[in-house]
């Protein structure tokens, strides 16, 4: 069947089998380019390595039918290249040595991006527990989450400082 999706801001037409998951369509091809940031880890919605944004909300693309994305917007890390918040998050993860094997990193980054975007919109700063909750669907076997949480905390603090400065300027 034909599926029309707005992938990373551009309209795409996919040919997909009726049972195909969003993960398989994004990752396996035959459509090019393949979205290699979207990783296959469990296919049961438990590990979060395949996290993407569906209309701005994080979903495990391995348990979302490709057909569900028809007429909707799908955003992957590839589509957030150059986005200031995503760039800041990526730099923070790298600087904090929070990227070991890196296989879970894109999924983590999508979850953190969503959290910080929501918090910025609401004018709040996420604490340790909120960051851990946001990451709780992204399993990482390498880091023990210590450095990823520290990286996210640092970006959240920077955003809060920027927010305060902007409020002061107004």
């Amino acid at each position: 069947m034909k599926i029309v999706v707005k992938l990373n801001g551009r309209n795409r037409e996919w040919e997909a089998a009726p049972g195909a998951t969003l993960l398989s369509v994004l990752r396996d091809g035959p459509q090019e380019p393949r979205m290699t940031s979207v990783k296959r880890g469990c296919e049961t919605g438990d590990c979060g390595a395949c996290t993407v944004l569906l209309d701005g909300q994080p979903v495990n693309s391995c348990v979302v039918a490709a057909a569900r994305a028809h007429g909707h917007a799908v955003t992957t890390i590839e589509g957030l290249a150059g986005d200031p918040l995503m760039t800041a998050l990526q730099a923070a993860l790298v600087e904090h040595a929070a990227v070991q094997c890196g296989y879970c990193s894109p999924g983590m980054l999508v979850s953190l991006y969503h959290l910080l975007k929501e918090c910025r919109a609401a004018g709040t700063t996420p604490g340790d527990h909120a960051i851990r909750e946001a990451l709780s669907g992204n399993l990482c076997r390498c880091t023990g989450y210590v450095k990823p949480v520290a990286a996210a905390t640092a970006v959240a603090a920077t955003l809060a400082a920027v927010g305060r400065a902007e409020a002061g300027a107004r």
Partner: peptide, 17 residues
């Protein structure tokens, strides 16, 4: 603590695996 040399491409989801 230098920057891990492959970290950025991993964080960008580039085709490396």
């Amino acid at each position: 603590n230098v920057t891990k040399i492959d970290a950025f491409k991993l964080a960008r989801g580039e085709p490396v695996y």
